[in-house]
Simulated scan of single mutants.
Amino acid sequence: MNKSLSSVPEFVLQCFIDSGQWSYTIAALFLIYLISFTGNFLVVLVIIMNPQHQTPMFLYIATLAVVDLMNSTNLIPRMLAAMIYGPLSVSYGPCALQVHVEGHILVVETLLLSLMAVDRYVAVVYPLRYPSLVTNKTVLVSNVIAVIIITPLTILLTELIFCISNSLPSCFCDYPTMVQIACNDDPKFLTYLSTITVIFAFGPLLLILFSYIRITQAALQISSVEGKKKVFSTCLTHLLVVGTIYIPLFLSYMLPGLGIPLSIEAYNTLIIVGNTVPPMLNPIIYSFRNKEIKGSILKLLTGTKPRQEIKNY
């Protein structure tokens, strides 16, 4: 490769996975993508088709399903290609686009989880003010924020100089890995990433935890056993979704920071799990934990006409 180039025409993805688990990983990823695509598509479809689902909370769920669809489609096909065909060459433009889309998705997803927690907080603690405080416009705002936040990261990507290698030890185009193999020694490339990671990972998580603590306090004051059960059931659904998204990604970044070394194979495994399993589990969690969505999906699959139901949210 020409060492005078500040950028490269393509990157080579080296997807390091334990050779003994290679075939199982490929089969698992294919199954995950199939379940994720089908499940999230059904969730979006039933919410669009049923007028009783046209509320902010269901809009958040539908948007999360769309985000999960985009996330799976943005990552898994390229991962599978890198595993099946060996080292995979990806042009600079598509690689940079994948980085941008992935960053946008992660920001929107964390904001959505925060909005869903705040939605439940307002609904339980300030029910009379709910219509005036919670609107559908917040989803658009979250996408605007994501564009503003991720655009500088994309600009920083164009400033990276690859003078030694264009081989990425990753299963997809990953910004931290690109910085790792680049020849730039300016800390700004990781400083900005670390800053937005703290803000849009720990910030929303603290807001989510605060919201559910306040919801729990309010729920304990409800005299009706059925009312308490309904509130805790809804909260458990959302906390399960939060856990599936945060735990694998936290482990992949926190373990090295705690001095626990991870091999390239282990790191890639955690990153793959953290980015592909949550989009598969989210529609399953909502389908089983939310009676309205589960009922609407069953009616859609059996061909029966939807009827008006009492709302869970």
Rank of each mutant, 00 (worst) to 15 (best):
K188P: 06
K188L: 15
F189M: 09
F189H: 08
L190D: 12
L190M: 15
T191D: 14
T191R: 10
T191H: 14
T191P: 06
Y192H: 07
Y192R: 05
L193N: 01
L193Y: 12
L193D: 03
L193P: 00
S194N: 11
S194T: 05
T195G: 09
T195R: 11
I196A: 03
T197W: 15
T197M: 13
T197G: 11
V198T: 10
V198R: 10
V198L: 15
V198D: 13
I199C: 10
I199H: 01
F200W: 02
F200G: 00
F200P: 00
F200C: 03
A201Q: 09
F202M: 12
F202T: 00
F202W: 14
F202S: 07
G203N: 05
G203E: 09
L205N: 00
L205D: 01
L205I: 05
L206S: 09
L206C: 15
L206M: 14
L206V: 13
L207G: 01
I208H: 00
I208G: 02
I208E: 01
L209N: 04
L209C: 08
L209W: 11
L209F: 14
L209R: 02
F210M: 06
F210K: 02
F210R: 02
F210V: 09
S211D: 03
S211C: 06
Y212H: 07
Y212V: 02
Y212G: 01
Y212Q: 01
I213H: 08
R214Y: 14
R214D: 11
R214N: 13
I215S: 02
I215G: 06
I215H: 10
T216C: 06
T216R: 12
Q217H: 09
Q217K: 04
Q217W: 07
A219W: 12
L220W: 15
L220C: 04
L220R: 11
Q221N: 07
Q221D: 11
Q221R: 12
Q221L: 13
I222Q: 06
I222K: 09
S223H: 12
S223D: 13
